[in-house]
Design a protein around this nucleic acid. Structure first.
Length: 846
RNA sequence: GCCGGGAUGGCGGAAUUGGUAGACGCACGGGACUCAAAAUCCCGCGGUGGCAACACCAUGAGAGUUCGAUUCUCUCUCCCGGCACCA
């Protein structure tokens, strides 16, 4: 055995061994419990970042652990290969996105392999492959047949930098999620998936997801946004026609307090009123411009303008003035609201500003409101000043009012959802073509199944001026499948979230040529453990749940939910160092370029290595280019090897917490594995000098106690303490070596198996060198020996008046009476009870 | 504002689900080895007082339940994440 631990050598050797053995090939084995462990597949951006390494290490630990526990494990890997960065890179370098993507995939695959992940590469897929995305197109057509896909012209979010449409989910605070550019509104014809038809199902099923983090479920529930209320109409006459203005409210009990109605600037009635009112038209234009800035919307002043129109209160018959208000959203509800200043704070502010009457129609059950109101009273209460509804509570009033409105044909109870249908058309080249042909005679014609896939030409180089597909006449020009006359292909491609909405199903049967999925899905799905970043809590996870339900209803799969358990790993952070020049420009220094000194009290002083001058500490933040605080995983792997990188990742923080990068921490992980190696060398030579020999019983007790705890921890996915258990066992062995080869061997064997999921290469290598077995990967997971935990004597801690006053050793199985006698004889205890009567004695058994 | 999650040494974090708070590691201090350094090994390391034995204080703050609370209950403060003029 080598004297020195050289990770590079043993890691290459172990990887070759696994490779030759086909060790990670997953086969459907009916009868054997399966474990499908999936990490969110990466976008092939160029090279792995630290977040990937963490994500995939967590997945690999679980994969290897469950393999050792006897499960039939599948851990696949693929590539989320369509997307904008490929086009941006193409514009910068003149390389076709396809070439760029494939090169990145090749490089990143080598990186993943060098980390020793137990991935079944025979199932590898990339979403840019025609035999993958043809099924996007196929399911799109099925959904089209079912009316789950439809075409609609609507107001969409337009990202002026990427020149593309964004889904609502891709707009964050009024800005594009990728570019950060302020989003504009445009009208564009596009295809939608009717996810709202599944709103109820998606919301209801959240309850069944007991293996999901609470906060992810909450985020999804908020996003779906179910509210119960009443949709009703104000009748009015305009241009000699009887019309209705519809609104939605969750507070129908306040309807008798309506003193105005307000329209969104985009509301058709607002446009009608502005026709002969130039001041109003100007105001509407101003609102439309302003309303793009959603981030500011929350803070801007309530503004409005009367339309001059009047509508009729549906219950009282009184006239109600109609305003346009900058705080009314066209996209939610009806784009118009009833104004109840007495009981809605926004309406209150609006009414106060414009001198609109404020009516109080709700009061607390046990007292009267102080009038005039200083702010809206928004709590539930009982109706007053409300005619026949006086005295009713919230629910009674809503029921009665809804019934009366229904009787008049002017409204009824309605459930309203925040969730909107999913617009999937993208005016981009590098994505899955939408399988539609536009024919002047026949309209929009679906591509027949036998013509799928519609293959994306791979040699385009986008130049930033719109979609290059539109310029490819060989792609665009085709014939109509219906009439055979010349026709044009749709050049929009699908949102890349479509690609990732079902890849986890395809991994079960990546070679299925005749169908989207086959019977192997029934064996592997649902995914037993899904692992990925919290940033996908809404978009990707909601779309995937939606697709699963659609495919279930098309009888393609028989599961309701795709992911039984979800682990959202924390982000990887690093320190930030910077200097601010006189001009105010900030220069960031990578922490690797900075010498940091900490004194006893933890005070930090930092100098740039290059010039020896001080830098400012900017706190801890996510690794990013802009803060220049990233660490390249490749450097870590090159310098320390995969095991040390993996061990550091697992040891430093629990998987769901943020992980702060630390060079010293990596060094600590390296130190441990080197110590383990050194110990193994000594063990192989036949034990070392017997130092402070403990009885073997105590040694086994120590090892098996640690093991028991480690098993409890790994069940909670608390891998940091599992790693520390490995360290504790090594510490114990180090102290005990020479006591008995039998126990040293048992301890070392446990240690290597405990370590195998985290640092598989060294565990594999040492296991073979020490002849513990052919392959630690296939060894049984260590379980503690209960017999080892039975002691002849146990230590008891003694408290007097709630304070620890000593400890005593008593024989195992001593009864309370005997224990009491021993404890009271203890001098330390005596000191604290002397001369006083003992009121109560509590003995905790064991 | 609403919803969710947090707060433990100089730092990352642990505490067998109410029973010795600070495991394991990092940093730091002291020592051994060395011509020297690195590596390695040994010792110390929450705070205050004390030569020491030991005592007191201490898990964001305050109360409560309990023989006993980091853990359970209530109130509050702060931090992180999500949602939000959502009618």
């Amino acid at each position: 055995m080598q004297q020195k631990y050289v990770p590079r050598d043993i890691e290459r050797e172990a990887q070759q061994y696994w490779d030759a053995a086909g060790a990670f090939r997953a086969r459907e084995t009916p009868g054997q419990p399966k474990y499908y462990c999936l990490s969110m597949f990466p976008y092939p951006s160029g090279k792995l970042h630290m977040g990937h390494v963490r994500n995939y290490t967590i997945g690999d630990v679980l994969t290897r652990y469950h393999r050792m526990k006897g499960r039939n494990v599948l851990q696949p890997m693929g590539w989320d290969a369509f997307g904008l960065p490929a086009e941006n890179a193409a514009m910068a370098n003149g390389v076709p996105p396809a070439k760029w993507t494939h090169e990145n995939i090749a490089y990143m695959k080598r990186q993943l392999q060098s980390l020793g992940f137990a991935i079944d590469w025979s199932r590898e897929l990339a979403t840019c492959q025609p035999d993958y995305y043809r099924w996007n197109q196929w399911l799109f057509l099925r959904m089209l047949e079912k009316g789950l896909v439809y075409k609609k012209t609507g107001i969409v979010n337009w990202d002026p930098v990427d020149k593309t449409v964004l889904a609502n989910e891709q707009v964050i605070d009024g800005r594009g999620w990728r570019t950060g550019a302020v989003v504009e509104k445009r009208e564009i014809p596009m295809y939608y998936m009717a996810i709202t038809r599944y709103a109820e199902a998606l919301l209801a099923a959240l309850e069944s997801l007991s293996g999901w983090p609470e906060r992810v479920k909450t985020m999804q529930a908020n996003w779906i946004g179910k509210s119960y209320g009443v949709r009703f109409a104000f009748p009015y006459e305009l241009d000699g026609k009887k019309e209705k203005l519809w609104v939605f409210t969750t507070r129908a009990d306040t309807i008798m307090g309506v003193t105005f109605a307000a329209l969104a600037a985009e509301h058709p009635l607002a446009a009608r009123a502005a026709r002969d009112n130039s001041k109003l038209a100007a105001f509407i234009e101003e609102c439309k411009r302003g309303s793009v800035m959603e981030a500011d919307l929350a803070t801007i002043e309530k503004k409005g303008m009367p339309t001059g129109l009047s509508i009729t209160h549906p219950l009282t018959g009184q006239p109600v003035p109609v305003w346009v208000g900058n705080y009314v959203l066209m996209a939610y509800g009806e784009g118009a609201v009833m104004g109840v200043p007495g009981h809605d704070q926004r309406d209150f502010e609006f009414a106060t500003q414009y001198g609109i009457p404020i009516r109080s129609v709700i009061k607390p059950r046990d007292k009267d409101l102080e009038l005039p109101l200083k702010q809206a009273y928004v709590e539930y209460g009982v109706c007053v000043n409300s005619g026949k509804y006086n005295g009713l509570d919230y629910q009674q009033a809503v029921d009665a009012i809804a019934a009366d409105l229904k009787a008049k044909g002017l409204g009824e109870k309605q459930v309203l959802w925040r969730l909107r249908d999913w617009g999937i058309s993208r005016q981009r080249y590098w994505g899955c073509p939408i399988p539609i042909i536009h024919c002047d005679g026949c309209g929009d014609v679906p591509v027949p199944d036998h013509d799928l896939p519609v293959v994306l030409p791979e040699d385009c180089v986008p130049d930033g001026t719109g979609n290059p597909l539109a310029k490819r006449t060989d792609f665009v020009n085709t014939t109509c499948p219906k009439c055979g006359k010349p026709a044009r292909r749709e050049t929009d491609t699908m949102d890349t979230f479509v690609d990732s909405s079902w890849y986890y199903l395809r991994f079960a049967c990546p070679d299925s040529a005749r169908s989207m999925v086959d019977e192997r899905v029934a064996y592997w799905l649902p995914v037993d453990q899904y692992i990925g970043g919290i940033e996908h809590a809404i978009l990707h996870l909601l779309y995937s749940r939606f697709w699963t339900k659609v495919m279930r209803d098309l009888e393609l799969v028989d599961i309701d939910e795709p992911f039984a358990n979800l682990l959202t790993q924390g982000m990887v952070l690093n320190e930030i160092y910077f200097r601010r020049a006189d001009g105010g420009r900030t220069t960031y220094f990578n922490p690797a370029e900075v010498d940091v000194k900490l004194d006893d009290a933890g005070n930090r002083s930092a100098l740039v290595k290059a010039d020896g001058a001080p830098v400012e500490f900017g706190g801890i933040g996510t690794m990013s280019k802009s803060k220049n605080n990233g660490v390249d995983p490749q450097e870590l792997i090159d310098h320390y090897g995969a095991d040390i990188a993996r061990f550091f990742m697992m040891f430093t923080s629990p998987p769901e917490d943020t992980l702060v990068w630390s060079d010293a921490g990596v060094e600590g992980a390296a130190r441990f594995l080197r110590r383990l190696w050194t110990y193994a060398v000594r063990f192989e030579r036949g034990g070392g000098p017997a130092i402070a020999a403990q009885p073997s019983k105590a040694a086994r007790f120590e090892i098996h106690s640690v093991l028991k705890q480690a098993n409890y921890d790994i069940g909670k996915h608390q891998f940091n303490t599992v790693a520390s258990a490995a360290m504790k066992i090594l510490n114990a062995l180090d102290r005990l070596l020479g006591v008995s080869d039998e126990i040293a061997k048992e301890g070392l064997s446990i240690l290597l198996r405990l370590l195998a999921p985290i640092a598989p290469h060294i565990a594999h290598h040492l296991g073979r060198e020490l002849k513990f077995g052919e392959d630690v990967r296939a060894a049984p997971w260590p379980e503690h020996d209960p017999a080892a935990l039975i002691e002849d004597e146990i230590e008891l801690v003694v408290q007097v008046n709630g304070k620890k006053r000593g400890d005593v050793r008593v024989p195992r199985g001593a009864d309370s009476k005997a224990i009491e006698t021993i404890v009271l004889a203890d001098p330390a205890v005596q000191k604290h009870v002397s001369g006083q009567a003992i009121k109560k004695v509590v003995v905790v058994p064991g």
